[in-house]
Amino acid sequence: MTEGPRPERVRVTGPPRRHTPRRRTGDIDDETRLGSVYLGSLLREQLRLAARTILVLVVTVGSLPLAFRVFPGLSEVTVLGIPLAWLLLGGLVYPFLVLLGWRYVRRAERNERDFADLLGEIER
């Protein structure tokens, strides 16, 4: 047995088997370019949805004053004895506004769910 310096103990380890999950929320918190892309996509999606809703509003309700001015004949139309103008402006416009709002809320919530799903996915 020869006396020599004792070899240093070496800890032998294998490559890590378990991957620590990294959430994509980290990308947004750290303001990485990827995070910026995620956030930008949500913003763009929501803004596009809002713009579409407003466009429908402008084209339908917003065009009524012009329509009654350009086509004076419209004001002579009556439905069930009620002048068309009164039926549209005094009644039907309200359920239409609710319908637009309802559609918007459904889609906006879906956009947010998609965004949450995207960020919830775990990087591998």
Binding site: L49, A50, T53, I54, L57, V61, P65, P83, A85, W86, L89, G90, V93, Y94, L97, L100, G101, Y104, V105, A108
Partner: peptide
């Protein structure tokens, strides 16, 4: 007359714009 129907329409539609652009 009928022109004034735009007041209540505007006061309601204002909430639609508030909903889509500002609320959340």
């Amino acid at each position: 007359g009928a022109d004034m129907l735009w007041y209540p329409i505007g006061w309601t539609a204002g909430y639609l714009l508030l909903l889509v652009l500002v609320a959340a």
